[in-house]
C-alpha cells in the first residue's frame, strides 16, 4: 500500500488511504474509488447515486474545468504528475482552488517528490502519495524551508508585499 500523507491545519501526518485507484480496464470494487475522467463521465453518476464515494484522477493534459459541475459531489480530485518535472498539475490545482472554488481534497499522485512540497502546498494540494519514501515530517520540513514567500497563493501564506505593509 503506498503511503498517503495528508495536510490539515498546517500539520502533515500519515493517513490511511481508503480509496482504491481503479484502472479503466478493472472492475469497480465496493468502497471509495478513484476513477479516470473518462470513466467518471460514463459511470460516475450511477456510483454516486448509489452512495459510493468517488474521486477523479485528472491526467496532466486534461482540464480540471471539465469537472466544474461535478466538484461538489466528488470525494477528492487526484492530479497526476506523469514526471516530477511536469508542472501542469500545479496549474490544475491552482484553478481548482481559485477558479472552481473546490474545497475538498486535492491529492498529488504519480511521480511525487518531497522536494516539490512547497510548490504543491502553495498551489492547494493537501494530500500526497510520495514516490520517494518520504515521511510526513520531511514534507512539513521541506515546506517550511522558506520563512517568506513573494506570491499570494492557495495556502493563504502572507506574501512579502503584504508583510511589508
Amino acid at each position: 500500500m503506498p503511503k498517503l500523507i495528508r495536510l490539515k491545519d498546517g500539520e502533515a501526518f500519515e493517513a490511511q488511504d481508503l480509496f482504491a485507484d481503479v484502472a479503466d480496464e478493472d472492475a469497480i470494487p465496493a468502497g471509495p474509488v478513484i476513477l479516470s475522467l473518462t470513466r467518471f463521465q460514463a459511470e460516475g453518476d450511477a456510483l454516486i447515486g448509489a452512495g459510493q464515494a468517488v474521486g477523479v484522477r485528472i491526467e496532466a493534459g486534461e482540464s480540471v474545468e471539465d469537472l466544474a459541475y461535478d466538484l461538489p459531489r466528488l470525494a477528492l480530485v487526484a492530479l497526476v504528475f506523469p514526471k516530477n518535472t511536469d508542472g501542469r498539475a500545479f496549474s490544475s490545482a491552482s484553478l481548482l482552488r481559485q477558479r472552481l472554488h473546490y474545497a475538498g481534497e486535492v491529492r498529488a499522485v504519480g511521480d511525487v517528490l518531497r522536494e516539490r512540497a512547497l510548490f504543491m502546498m502553495r498551489c492547494g494540494f493537501d494530500s500526497f502519495v510520495p514516490t520517494d519514501g518520504s515521511t510526513p515530517a520531511e514534507w512539513a520540513a521541506t515546506a517550511e524551508r522558506y520563512r517568506h514567500v513573494y506570491q499570494p497563493a492557495q495556502d493563504g501564506r502572507t506574501p512579502a508585499f503584504a508583510e511589508r505593509l
Binding site: L118, F119, R122, Y150, A160
Partner: peptide, 11 residues
C-alpha cells in the same frame, strides 16, 4: 521577486 520560487510556474 514574483518569479522567484513561483508556486505554479517553476516546472
Amino acid at each position: 521577486q514574483w518569479s522567484t520560487l513561483h508556486p505554479e510556474f517553476s516546472f
